[in-house]
């Protein structure tokens, strides 16, 4: 049976027919989000008299993932933001035919030499740069919010939604996930859903690209406090830009076990950075709605990860860890936002 390195070599030969002496090596599985298997590898080949060497990333669909997402949308989002000031890796090939590697996948460039782990960020030399990291983190999010999805070519690739409808679509989707995947009753998140339906937010001030999982842990940073890449666009979609802001403020990302959001800065500072960069307003009532929604979405993800592990063939411990570690924090975050803590 052919190894993954051999299968990759055969596939890339099809994509680079003019290349000679093409070789794939140093293949290594890495952590890269819970929805796809992620590998880094080195590609080397001759292009005429020129030797080419590239460090690449393979993202391959597993049989069951934490988040059921469309790889075509993730690939399109990476491509759309390339060269826009939102730092993303370059995407090379999207392949939906499982014949090549056993399941669909895409390949892009590796942004190497940087950190992504939240725990690392809490230690020196990174801990001295939290203000700079926060400035970039919420400024880049603001750029994404300010961008025009039509100009980016993402309308069509992503389903359009009217400004007054985005909250209904998102809430309906995640309530559906809970209905389908809930293993034990969730009285707090159910109460949050009822509150959200009784108190709808105003229509979105614009329809933006929503990254969908924009948080500490999904960007690459260095020891000088510079962000080099925004990753894990697997849940990206069109919607209310406050959705990303609310998600980034979620208490479950308070990695430093204090009030600093994303383990970086106080909530109000994060909002101020985002408003300045996006040119948009974070209306307090609307943002409160999206922060509470983030607890529903979070619980939807943790519930479905537990469900996937318990009922599916994917026994990756990350599926259990996210459920065991975060579900109670997520409930407490909902209680706090509803003024009950």
């Amino acid at each position: 049976m052919a190894t993954l390195e051999e299968l990759l070599t055969d596939y890339i030969k099809l994509k680079l027919p003019a290349a000679s002496a093409l070789r794939v090596d140093q293949l290594e599985q890495i952590s890269g989000g819970a929805s796809r298997q992620t590998y880094r590898f080195r590609l080397s080949y001759q292009e005429g008299t020129k030797s080419v060497e590239r460090r690449l990333i393979l993202r391959r669909d597993p049989t069951n993932s934490l988040i059921d997402t469309d790889r075509r949308i993730e690939f399109a989002a990476y491509r759309a933001f390339s060269g826009t000031g939102v730092p993303v890796p370059e995407m090379l090939w999207l392949e939906e035919d499982p014949a090549h590697l056993g399941s669909p996948f895409f390949i892009g460039t590796e942004l190497s030499g940087f950190q992504s782990a939240p725990a690392q960020m809490l230690m020196e030399p990174y801990a001295s740069h939290h203000a700079e990291l926060a400035e970039q983190k919420w400024s880049i999010m603001g750029k994404i919010a300010a961008s025009d999805p039509k100009k980016l070519g993402l309308v069509g690739a992503m389903e359009w939604v009217e400004p007054a409808e985005s909250w209904k679509r998102e809430l309906g989707y995640w309530e559906g996930v809970l209905d389908t995947d809930e293993l034990i009753p969730q009285p707090i998140v159910r109460a949050a859903i009822r509150w959200l339906r009784r108190n709808p937010p105003p229509p979105a001030q614009k329809i933006s690209v929503v990254h969908g999982d924009y948080r500490t842990g999904n960007f690459l940073y260095d020891e000088t406090g510079k962000i080099h890449g925004i990753l894990d666009w697997e849940m990206s979609h069109l919607g209310d830009p406050l959705e990303d802001l609310g998600w980034s403020l979620n208490r479950v990302w308070c990695w430093a076990h204090d009030d600093r959001r994303g383990g970086l800065v106080p909530r109000e500072r994060a909002i101020a950075i985002w408003q300045k960069a996006s040119g948009l307003k974070a209306d307090p009532k609307a943002l409160h709605w999206w922060e509470l929604f983030a607890t529903v979405k979070g619980q939807g993800i943790w519930v479905s990860s537990a469900h996937s592990w318990e009922t599916g063939s994917n026994k990756d411990p990350v599926l259990i860890l996210s459920a065991w570690w975060l579900m109670n924090s997520q409930d407490r975050a909902a209680l706090e936002l509803m003024g009950k803590l």
Binding site: W255, N328, K340
Partner: peptide, 16 residues
């Protein structure tokens, strides 16, 4: 009761 239910389930290392 719901507030108490989250206290009963709290984990030392949880983020919140």
């Amino acid at each position: 009761e719901l507030v108490k239910s989250t206290e009963r389930r709290r984990l030392v290392a949880a983020p919140f």
